[in-house]
Computed example of a mutant assay.
Amino acid sequence: MVLSVIATAFILVLPVELPDKTLFASLVLATRFPPLPVFVGVGAAFGLQVAIAVTAGSLLSLLPEALVSGVVAVLFLVGAVLLWRSARSGPEDEELGETGQGSSFLRIAAVSFGVLFAAEWGDLSQLATAGLAARYDEPLSVFVGAWAALLVVSGLAVFLGTKLADRLPIALIRRVAAGLFLVFAAFAVAETVRALAS
């Protein structure tokens, strides 16, 4: 494992997820159920989603270098635009539907897993994770960094609850995350140009 890649994945994914539906879905689940089984279910869902994104990014890295860096640049540019445009909107609300009133640890963890696993498809953190896995040849390091960031966000939501949601400067967090995505897109464009020139 490479610590710099773990740190890069963590730093890129964390601000993307702070104002995201993930935080608010975890928060709502934690208001309905005890926090520990919610956190276990959410953490397991994130682990599977990150593994899928890392696998997709690693498969992408098998393509020619110029094509990979071009795709990575597009992924990060799309993420930057989406984050910047969403900076003025409020927190995303997640419709949880009927979750049932079962009180067993496993049932609550399963409900939390299902809600978050469904909510994360096509999310910006998945794009970022796949892009990082394609850019670096360190899938395990990308996995650890991205999953750690997602666990921190869900832990904050589950264990700190509404106090956190009321104090997050969502517009600022989304703009900072958009800036990070733009920086990674610029690096990927430079790599594409270099690969095409050689």
Rank of each mutant, 00 (worst) to 15 (best):
V2T: 14
V2D: 11
V5I: 08
V5H: 02
A7Y: 04
A7R: 02
F10R: 01
L12A: 14
L18N: 02
F24M: 14
A25L: 07
V28L: 07
A30H: 07
A30E: 02
T31V: 07
F33Y: 12
P37I: 03
V40L: 14
V42Q: 00
Q49Y: 10
T55G: 13
T55C: 08
S58G: 10
L59S: 09
L62P: 03
L62E: 12
L63E: 10
A80E: 01
V81S: 08
E95A: 11
E98Q: 03
E98R: 08
T99A: 14
G100A: 06
G100P: 10
Q101D: 14
S103R: 14
L106T: 11
G114T: 05
V115E: 08
L116N: 05
E120P: 00
S125K: 05
A128F: 03
T129V: 03
A130M: 08
G131V: 05
A134R: 12
V144F: 00
G145V: 04
G145P: 01
A146P: 03
V152E: 13
S154C: 10
K163S: 12
A165E: 13
A165H: 11
D166M: 10
R167V: 13
I170A: 15
R174W: 03
R175I: 11
V176N: 02
G179C: 08
V183Q: 12
A185P: 02
A186Y: 09
F187A: 09
V189K: 02
E191G: 14
L196D: 03
A197Y: 14
